[in-house]
Every structure is written in C-alpha cells, then in structure tokens.
Design a protein around this nucleic acid. Structure first.
Length: 765
DNA sequence: GGCCGGGGCATTTTT
DNA sequence: TGCCCCGGCC
C-alpha cells in the first residue's frame, strides 16, 4: 500500500503527504495531476480516514469516473465506492435531495437542463409579451445564470443597484421580473436548474447551520480538481465546508482557466492563498507529456500573461521537433494543407490516424476540414454534436420518466402531453398554463381538476386531457412498486412511443429506434448492476437521478476505430495526442473578436492557445490563412498576435504550400475524389447510456461461452469470468442461500462483491 | 402536424 | 455562406 508513493516524484510526493492544512497544488500541463489526486486519496485512506469522510469534487463525470477507477485499483472497489466523489452538481444534488425539506423543495425535485431552462424562459418572455428581439433568450439566460452564480436570488436581484443599472443600460429592465417568474415556475414544478444546485446548496448551508455542521463534520477532507474552473458559488460551498477543519486540497492550473464565460473565476485559484491563511503551495512543474520544444514554446507564450502564478514547467523528454507554422492563402487551402501534412506525417512516422488531433477555436471551422479529409480518405471523428441525452427521442422518453417521478415537472409535462399526438394542441396547453400561472400552481394540479381552475375546453378535449391524466396516474401508481427497467418498458409500450419509432423506416427513424433500444439497455444494465450489488428495489427515480446529470459527450466509445480527432480547443482540455494541429490562428478568430477589447479576455484566449499547444506530445503544427470565408464573404485575415508570443527558438516557419500536391490547392483540382468515408453521423459511436465506473469498459471484455457457474463450484481461489468485469479470482463466498455473495478480485477492476443470484459468474478451468 | 421558405444570426459550453 | 427558428400554409 505504501509502494505507490515510490511512483511519485519529489514534488508530487510532498503534495500527497502534506495533510496539515489548506493546500494548493499548482499542476502544470501534463504534470501528473490526476496521479497526485488519486494517490493523495489513497494516502488519506491509509492514514485511517474513512472513505465516506472524504469528499472529492470534479467538473466532469468523466474525471470522477476515471479517478474512481484508479483508486479502486489501489484500494479495491468496495472502498472506492464509499468515497464521496463526483461532480459538484451531482454531489450537491444528492445532498439537496436529502435535505430538500429545509429549503422548500420536494426531495424528488427535477433537474432542468439548459434546454429546459431555455424553453421555460421562452414561454415566460412570450407570456409577458416582451419583444424577443430585445429580450434575447441566450442573453436573458446568461444574465440569470450569472446572478445565480453570484448567489443573487430573484428577490435580491431587484435590490442590486449594479444589476438594475446594467439592465437599464442594456435596455432590458424587466430581467428582474423574468427572473422572478422563472424562479416561481421552477418552484411550482419542483425543479432546479444547474445553477440552482449550487445556489440552493449555499442557501441551505447559510440558513441551516446544523446542516452545514453535519456535512462539514462528515467531510473531514475535501479535495477539488480543476480548481481554476470553479465559480463563486462553488468556491463558497467549499469554503463553508472547510472553514473550521482547514482540511482542503485544491488542484488546478491557473494557466488552463478557459471557462470564464461559464462563470468560472480565475481569482479563486489566484487568491486561494489569501482566502486560506496558512495555506501551503505545491507546484508540479515537471511535464511528462510533451517534448522540450513543445513545453518551451508553450511557456514562452503563457509568460506573456500578466495574471498568473509563477511556475517553471519543464520537460526531461527529448528536445523533439520544433513547432511548425503553416501559412496559407485561404481557409480552403489550410484544410487541404493540414490533410496533406497529416498524411505525410503518418507515412513518415508510420503512426495511426488516432494519433492526430485537429483543434480549432470555433465549431464552424470543422466543415472545410471535414471536406478535405473526406476527399483524401482520412477517417475522422468530430466531437461536439448532441450528446446522447440531448437527442429528441431520448429526451422524450426521459420526460415521461421525469413526469412519473415528479408530476409537477412543467417542462416534462409540456413535452409529453401531445407526444405521441393525442390531439391536445398548443391552444389547450396554453389554457392550462395560464390557469396554472394565475392560480400559482402546477400544470399537473390543473390537469387533475380542470373545472376547479376554470379551464375552458370542449368536451372532446376534456376527454383527451382526462385520458392523459389516467395514463400518467397509472404509471405513478406503479412507480414505487416496480423496478425501473420494468416500468420503463411499460411506459414506452403503453404510451405508444415504441411503436411510433418502430414504424418510422427512414434512416433517421432507424437511428432513433436504436437510440431508444440503447436507452432501454442502459436502464436494464443499471438495474442489473444494482441487483448484483445487492440493492433491493431499484426505482425509476434512482435511475433518473443518476442520468439527469450525465450529460457529457460520449468520448469515442470505440477506441478501436483509428480516426483523426476534430474538436474545439475547449473540448480538448485534459486530453493528449502525439500529433496536434492548431488551425485558424488569425486575429479576430483566435483570439476571438469578442475578446479584443479586454485584457482579461485576451489573456483567457492566450490560455486557450496554451491549452491547445500543450495537448501535443511529439509534434505540434500551427496554421493560419490569409483569407477566410466568414459570415458569407471572404475576408482578409492577419496572423494571430499569439504567434508572435512564441519564442522563435521553438518555432519553425514552414513554407507549407510548396510541398503540397498542386491539385490540392484548387477547388476544381485534378485530385480524383475518393468515396466518401462515412457521414459524421454514422461515425459517432453508439453512446454508452450509463457510464459509471463499473460499466464503462464492458466492451473490452469478450463475452464468454463458458456456462454459468453452479453455486457449488464457486470456492475461494477459483478463477471466474464476469461479462462486464472480465476475469478475476474468487476470494470468498458467503453462503446465505438466496443472498449468497462472492467477493472477487478482478484483474482490471479490483475487488467486488457480487450477489450470485444476479451476477452470472462463469468458472474458468 | 408537418413542410417550406424567409429572415436573422453567426465564440467557446465541464453541469 | 449555412443554420436555425418562426410563421404561414396545406
């Protein structure tokens, strides 16, 4: 258990072993940040801290999952599972469900995603008869979100001079009223949006000291990953929890703070030492990822920023090649130059397509690259489409689940009341809404007693409403006595959703049908896994609370497919590739036009470029075009100011055009067009529905044809195979008839306890 | 309810 | 230039 410390370098080890007070770990790019966090948690456990007394917060589900997996390899799965580890949103949603009564929400509250919030706001703007050109949806949403991040509730909003004035100046003085209405509607619906999860947690801790006391005692040690990305609300929650204990460790890199537009506040990390007196700072400066040239080039760039914590990131890998800069005449040529160069590099290094990534500032830049790649027969995958849960067909089904778990959920209600079509049109729904709004109640209450709320509809419509109500009531009555997978199956059948999708024979329809099947499979797996772990009944609400915050993009899914990765720089954070192209390095694009009049914004763009360069392990190619098609016309472009920030010792200016095949530069070139590789839609891997730590790597384990084990065969020492966890050795078996469990040490997943009646273990010879 | 066309628009998006 | 949203029409 202690030998893992030997896998750390000196500064990493110091950071792991220091546990006497507030700790800030500045983790340069590629410096083994996750390793420090995981080993620190293992170290704390080794010091006798119980897993349930450790809180570890991350920003993405993926990060939490990966860290859990790595800890499980050291401590075993049983211990890792008891850690409080997850995203800010999921951890505090969990706590808010337990404590909901204190803040006037039901414990089965719905979580509105960004789309739900938008829809609700759209409705409110319409109801208030405001001009939607003035009250632009995105603007309204971001103002409300910013207020919530700053802990300004709708009641405080109107009293805040600064905000009121800013709204006046922007000619949108009614934001305060929209905010108030929005919040009331959320309350009626028993719903919280993403920002509420943090805001309400703060309110909970502020107004209920005993609750705060309970959690700050529970969490004897708090760790936060990617601290540079925290917003004010998150910073405050963490501070409240650690105020007395001082046992906090935050890890991050101020140089990689790129989410200020989402409310992230770089000052949280810059000012940490002042916020936590007696804090110790550790710097992880050795970069294990990139060659010296890449690290040095990135350093020379980021040193041009004023606001930063001084650090000296270095690499002890070989010097490597210099960064190369390609200068092209147009965006069109840039795309083809990148494609050609990629092919040449692939030949020269005999590496895989999967070893390349193309990074750009805006999603719009992907189109030409795709075109060029298709023409050259280069396989690629694009990140940035809709995630599985954002697809319409999935949201529709989930909306039914939401409504069953919380019938007051307005957005779910509006989504499903006429889907599949039941002849309940917009007019009728409008009547329900205005009745609900004027009575200050939920749509569901109105549906339950339309006459009481004076809803004027004809007999036919009344009948349709009533039958919808009966249908939903039927599901609700089964909610607490049926397992999630069973109930879900019933829902898609009885609502006609399954049939509706099944009869659509178009390519699109087939995809939707497959997605639905994938969702159902995910629910079944979720239930199966819980059963194996020995949970009793698995309610639909259990599934729902798990998925409502699982919105992350599916990361490729099939690692086997050898494809070039195309993504925005933002999306590339945390990833690494042997070869990286950063394209479109022009003024007005990178840095973005929006950033040009603020130093802070320019510095953030520079950090973004820093993030891009530091994704590269071996080769980094930069490119810019002298003209680019934007907003319908070709515009002249000048090279990005950031290119001048890179020390010329590490940068080689390539005359990129020369070595390109002549035909590649002209639109009607002689290049014979190759068969289209495959459409981006088809390239997207089948998404994993539930991506918990223990379901992720399922596909890496070949299903076995060995028959299921008879109970008698399972003895300590026997090697077994599990469909999901692969091979492992039985450590012990507890014989309790129906509830017999086996403890198995899996080769790749650590120790697990499995309920034998569900886990289909197969004995290997 | 679904399809078509005009008008407005156009960073980044962990939850 | 292309996408998305809305409104009008069948």
């Amino acid at each position: 258990m202690t030998d893992y410390l030997e896998q750390l370098n000196d500064s990493q080890r110091e950071a792991v072993e220091y546990c006497d007070g507030p700790e800030l770990v500045i983790a340069g790019a590629g410096s083994g940040k996750t390793r420090v966090l995981t080993y620190k948690i293992a170290y704390l456990l080794n010091q006798g801290i119980k897993p349930w007394n450790i809180l570890a917060l991350t920003f993405t589900n993926k990060a939490a999952r990966e860290m859990k997996e790595r800890i499980a390899l050291i401590t075993g799965d049983a211990v890792a599972r008891q850690l409080w580890m997850g995203t800010f949103h999921s951890i505090f949603a969990r706590i808010l469900r337990v404590e909901a009564e204190h803040i006037g929400f039901p414990s089965n509250f719905t979580i509105y995603d960004a789309t739900d919030s938008k829809n609700l706001l759209k409705g409110i703007i319409k109801e208030m008869q405001l001009d939607d050109k003035t009250y632009r949806l995105g603007m309204v949403q971001s103002r409300i979100s910013r207020a919530k991040n700053a802990l300004i509730t709708h009641t405080l909003y109107g009293q805040n001079k600064e905000l009121v004035e800013s709204d006046m100046n922007a000619k949108v003085p009614l934001i305060r009223d929209i905010y108030a209405r929005y919040q009331n509607r959320c309350l009626q619906a028993g719903a919280m949006d993403f920002d509420d999860l943090l805001l309400q947690t703060n309110i909970l801790f502020r107004d209920h000291p005993s609750v705060l006391e309970k959690y700050s005692q529970r969490f004897q040690y708090v760790l936060v990953d990617e601290y540079q990305d925290t917003n004010f609300a998150q910073h405050l929650i963490v501070r409240k929890l650690c105020e007395t204990s001082g046992r906090i460790c935050v890890v991050g890199d101020d140089a990689q703070s790129i989410y200020s537009f989402r409310g992230a506040n770089i000052d949280n990390i810059l000012q940490f030492r002042n916020q936590y007196p007696g804090c110790r700072i550790f710097k992880l400066e050795r970069n294990y990822r990139s060659t010296q040239n890449i690290v040095n080039a990135a350093n020379s760039l980021i040193n041009k920023n004023k606001e930063q914590i001084p650090k000296n990131v270095y690499s002890e890998k070989e010097a490597g090649s210099k960064l190369r800069l390609l200068s092209l005449y147009s965006d069109y040529e840039e795309a083809y130059a990148v494609a050609s160069m990629l092919l040449r590099m692939r030949m020269a290094q005999s590496c895989r397509y999967g070893d390349f990534a193309i990074l750009y500032r805006t999603n719009a830049q992907s189109r030409l690259l795709e075109e060029a790649f298709r023409k050259r027969g280069i396989p690629y995958k694009i990140y940035g489409g809709l995630s599985f849960y954002q697809r319409k067909e999935i949201k529709d089904v989930i909306a039914y689940f939401r409504l069953i778990v919380n019938p007051h959920d307005e957005e779910a209600f509006k989504r499903v009341i006429n889907y599949p079509a039941r002849g309940i049109g917009e007019t009728t729904v409008g009547k329900l809404i205005s009745a609900a709004v004027s009575a200050g109640t939920s749509l569901w209450h109105v549906l339950e007693a339309p006459l009481e709320y004076a809803v004027q509809v004809n007999a036919g419509t009344a009948r349709k409403l009533s039958s919808f109500r009966v249908l939903m009531e039927h599901f609700v009555s089964l909610r607490d006595s049926m397992d999630a997978d069973e109930l879900a199956g019933l829902v898609i059948k009885e609502t006609g959703l399954l049939q509706l999708l099944a009869q659509d024979r178009s390519t699109e329809g087939l995809g939707k049908y497959e997605n639905l099947q994938e969702l159902m499979k995910g629910i079944a797996e979720f239930c199966q896994l819980r059963r194996e772990e020995g949970s009793g009944q698995i309610h639909l609400s259990d599934f729902l609370s798990e998925v409502s915050l699982l919105t992350d993009q599916d990361d490729s899914g099939d690692d086997a497919a050898d494809k070039v990765t195309l993504m925005t720089v933002h999306a590339a954070k945390g990833l690494e590739f042997p070869n990286v192209f950063v394209v479109g390095l022009e003024e007005e694009l990178f840095p973005s036009t929006m950033a040009k009049d603020s130093l802070r914004a320019i510095e953030e763009e520079r950090r973004l470029f820093y993030v891009a360069i530091t994704r590269a392990e071996e080769n980094c190619v930069l490119s810019y075009a002298k003209s680019r098609f934007r907003n319908g016309q070709s515009q002249p472009c000048s090279p990005s100011r950031f290119l001048r920030d890179i020390d010329l010792r590490y940068l080689e200016v390539d005359n990129g055009g020369q070595s390109l095949p002549a035909g590649s530069l002209r639109k009607n070139g002689s290049e014979p067009s190759r068969p289209v590789f495959s459409s981006p839609l088809q390239q997207q891997a089948a998404p994993r529905v539930l991506r918990r730590m223990d379901t992720v790597k399922r596909e890496t384990v070949a299903p076995s044809s060995v028959p299921p084990a008879a109970l008698g065969e399972l003895k300590p020492g026997v090697r077994v195979r599990h469909d999901r966890f692969g091979e492992g050795k039985v450590l012990s078996v507890s014989e309790e008839g129906n509830n017999a469990k086996a403890t198995v040490a899996f080769d790749n997943f650590g120790q697990k306890q499995l309920l034998l009646k569900y886990a289909k273990l197969k004995v290997l010879d």
